[in-house]
């Protein structure tokens, strides 16, 4: 039987609660993803898909609900523990790449390893290996500003992958890329999912991209509709 990587129940996210400008971004969402599964959360702009990803990945707080991840309740975790958990078990890929501009490609990639206390030499070696794996073996010392959009997203993926996380969260990973590069990036994510058995949860508004996933969760107005 396949184990659940994440299971979220009755997730609510309300902004400005009790105020006239209250916004209910998530309205009692139930969500689950199996280990090693590649899953896409789909929806129109404003449907709450990114908010759901932020909440279940632990980078944003929920108003109420339960998130079971690895047998732990993410909602009840204190910030320090949650941060440590993210550092050890999660990887992130964002639409706007979010690389540290002053660091080179290899320095960006080795960062999660250093955070996890891996010695500098080993970190550097593993960072280079993973960069080679994503096709950037000749771009170790380039800064983000010296790379193309596709290359930057590859660095981001390498960074998300380098410490072998259980889950990679990807928010519109191809949003800033042309269709050809987007396809390359998605195939890369697919390969990672298969080769490393990493759970990938991806947010997108495009059916074409969602088709790369094994499972699609559709959202509308803060609720899962399918």
């Amino acid at each position: 039987m396949t184990q659940k990587a994440i299971e979220a129940k009755n997730i609510w996210k309300i902004y400005n609660q009790g105020k006239p400008n209250e916004v209910r971004a998530l309205k009692g969402v139930d969500f689950s993803a199996d280990e090693g599964q590649m899953l896409a959360i789909m929806g129109e702009s404003g449907s709450g898909k990114t908010t759901l990803l932020n909440c279940i990945s632990g980078i944003d707080n929920v108003t109420r609900g339960e998130i079971d991840i690895d047998g732990l309740d993410l909602v009840k975790m204190k910030d320090k523990r949650k941060t440590q958990y993210r550092a050890e078990k999660m990887g992130f890929v964002f639409q706007s790449f979010n690389l540290i501009p002053v660091l080179t490609a290899e320095e960006n990639v080795e960062l999660p390893l250093l955070i996890n206390g891996i010695p500098a030499k080993e970190s550097r070696m593993r960072a280079r290996e993973i960069l080679k794996e994503v096709g950037l073996g000749n771009r170790f010392n380039h800064k983000p500003s010296e790379l193309s959009g596709g290359q930057r997203q590859r660095v981001t993926i390498a960074r998300a992958l380098v410490h072998k996380p259980k889950v990679i969260w990807a928010d519109e990973p191809t949003g800033n890329l042309d269709s050809k590069t987007a396809e390359e990036v998605l195939k890369l994510l697919q390969n990672i999912n298969k080769e490393h058995n990493t759970t990938i949860v991806m947010v997108t508004h495009s059916f074409e991209i969602a088709e790369y996933a094994e499972k699609i969760v559709k959202m509308d107005s803060g609720m899962v509709v399918r």
């Binding site: 980078i59 320090k80 993210r86 992130f92 964002f94 706007s96 955070i115």
Partner: peptide, 16 residues
């Protein structure tokens, strides 16, 4: 802001 957010996502705690 965005970079700090990213670092926090990657595992930088508040003290770091």
């Amino acid at each position: 802001r965005q970079q700090i957010g990213m670092l926090r996502s990657l595992g930088f705690n508040q003290n770091m």
